[in-house]
Write a protein that binds this DNA or RNA. Structure first.
Length: 511
RNA sequence: CGGGGCGUAGCUCAGCCUGGUAGAGCGCCACGUUUGGGACGUGGAAGCCGCAGGUUCAAAUCCUGUCGCCCCGACCA
């Protein structure tokens, strides 16, 4: 048992924080609510970026960058938007610092119009699109940006909700409502596929209720995931903004019929919150467990030796194994590479930047086992004199802690890839099974209350209604996570009002 | 922003009530013995006791303010 990690049963919140700390994913910053994403945490974000970015490009999008600061007046141009975000904006009111005469500094020039630090970029992007779009021939505009945003949240949690966070926000403008809707759903599918295929997190696609939708959107779609404590986590959103922002920012074009029309826009985003989801969906009481596709290191090799002779023998064996897995060129390149603290790194796959590490640190083997285990590395391989003599090695699988003795000659890239893919599939399957087992129904309000208290998702019929939702949240802590797509045709008797014709919804306590 | 807990070495914490030389375990460094799942011994480095005021001959300790963290709410990706 890990001595630096509380168990999930003991204290789930503490477990989450302990896992992050043990795996060195993030640290608290000196500024309230902000975090430092450490290299091992940032590598996860880079992996997410690489895969998602390709999916965006594959669907025709391009990247650009818009500024961090937004004129305060922009926010006010869309009524719902300002209402949704005003409360959580950080504002820049001054520029320059000057000496305050007491050995310190004070802000000097007050700005004529304050800037807000972007909480999201619909407004500034809308402003620019208005200038770029003149004709229907300029449409669609399909731009994404990777950036940071800031929301002055009252209560923060590493990765799940920090004041500043990293995300991507896609912003598109279209000629017709139908095209915008198609785009909104296309990107929701991109997110859902990504979550399942890459992060091994099963998600429910659905639509948000009026009270949960994005401020300024006509309709918001989302993917919802279940964490191991049964709580829901919104893992991504895609908004059809209708003509709301186009009207607020004058995104107009001359249409095919020679009349001026407003564009139809969408926006969609996922954030570093996904790293929180990754941790809470898969990790265990021993620490981080990473789905192989996300893992920066796919295998850690732990040499075992006593004497210099043994060390040389083991090193030669490991070199052969690395050459077989990563290639001779990479073995040579890896030897020349600077290595931090005795851990040498060899790229197993240059495209995904995933590597195999050899832990030559001057620690005991047991320490190294725990080290890589807590960091979620999918496979660990011990190589000692006994293994060199027998030609077999023991490969340990992080996902289920199983061990396998493998003939060294079978350690080929193909073999490792097959093993990695097998774990990827098993992890998705396990998470899906957990979610399904923790999804219940309810035919009455009492049953809804009882099942929500059990944790997990509750699928039931319900007429979305701002007041009823607020009341239910008050009484059960649960909110409508979405109206799931996979149940849209069915209607039934509302658990709250008793009225017929209610759509199916998912209730859950959410992060 | 409301309620609760807490800021003392890199980490976890004791000391505070009753003011008077700054402590432990883990980690870190050196050396030795070790090394197939978190080793042991010896020696060592390491702290403006969160920050700012106040009371006092004297403050980690008492008082005021402030900042931050964790948990529970409200808000939210």
């Amino acid at each position: 048992m890990a001595k630096n990690i509380k168990t999930r049963a003991e204290d789930y919140s503490q477990w989450y924080l302990d896992v992050i700390k043990a795996a060195q994913l993030a640290d608290y910053a000196p500024v309230r609510g902000c975090m430092v994403i450490r290299p091992d945490g940032f590598a996860l974000w880079e992996a997410i970026q690489r895969d998602l970015d390709q999916r965006f490009k594959d669907t025709g999008h391009v990247n650009a960058y818009f500024p961090l600061l937004i004129p305060q007046s922009f926010l006010a141009k869309e009524a719902q938007h300002v209402e949704g975000f005003a409360m959580e904006c950080a504002i820049v009111t001054h520029h320059r610092l000057e000496k305050d005469g007491k050995g310190g500094l004070k802000p000097a020039g007050e700005l004529e119009e304050p800037f807000i630090i972007r909480p999201t970029s619909e407004t500034v992007i809308g402003h620019m699109y208005a200038q770029w779009v003149q004709s229907y021939r300029d449409l669609p505009v399909l731009i994404n940006q990777w950036c940071n945003v800031m929301r002055w949240e009252l209560r923060t949690r590493l990765f799940l909700r920090t004041a500043e966070f990293l995300w991507q926000e896609g912003h598109t403008a279209h000629e017709t409502q139908a095209e915008a809707q198609e785009e909104t759903l296309r990107m929701l599918d991109v997110y859902a596929d990504f979550a399942e295929e890459f992060l091994a997190i099963p998600v429910v696609k659905g639509r948000k209720t009026e009270s949960e939708k994005f401020p300024g959107a006509d309709v918001t779609y989302c993917i919802e995931a279940m964490m191991q404590d049964g709580k829901a986590l919104q893992a991504g959103t895609s908004h059809n903004l209708g003509q709301n922002f186009a009207k607020a920012f004058d995104i107009k074009f001359l249409g095919r019929q020679n009349v001026i029309e407003h564009a139809w826009t969408t926006s969609w985003g996922v954030s570093t919150r996904l790293i929180g989801a990754l941790i809470m969906a898969h990790s265990d009481d021993d620490g981080l467990v990473l789905p192989p596709r996300v893992a920066p290191n796919v295998m850690a090799i732990i040499p075992i030796f006593k004497t210099d002779d043994e060390r040389a023998k083991v090193a030669a064996f490991i070199d052969k194994a690395v050459a077989a897995l990563c290639g001779e060129d990479e073995l040579a390149a890896g030897r020349k590479r600077m290595s931090a603290g005795g851990v040498t790194r060899y790229f197993f796959d240059r495209a995904s930047q995933q590597s195999i590490v050899v832990d030559w640190r001057d620690n005991r083997p047991g320490d190294k086992q725990f080290h890589w285990e807590q960091r979620g590395v999918p496979f660990r391989m011990e190589v000692g004199p006994r293994d060199v003599d027998s030609g077999n090695v023991v490969v340990k699988r992080r996902f289920d802690r199983s061990k396998e003795t493998v003939e060294a000659s079978k350690l080929t890239p193909k073999h490792l890839r097959t093993e990695l893919e097998a774990v990827q599939a098993l992890m998705l399957e396990k998470a899906r099974k957990f979610r399904d087992e923790n999804t219940r129904g309810a035919s009455s309000y009492d049953e809804l209350k009882a099942n929500v208290a059990n944790g997990g998702f509750v699928r039931c019929f319900f007429h979305p209604d701002r007041e009823a939702e607020a009341k239910i949240k008050d009484e059960t802590k649960a909110t409508v996570r979405c109206l799931p797509f996979d149940a849209q045709s069915k209607t039934g008797k509302c658990v709250y009002s008793g009225k017929e014709g209610a759509p199916e919804v998912i209730f859950a306590v959410a992060y």
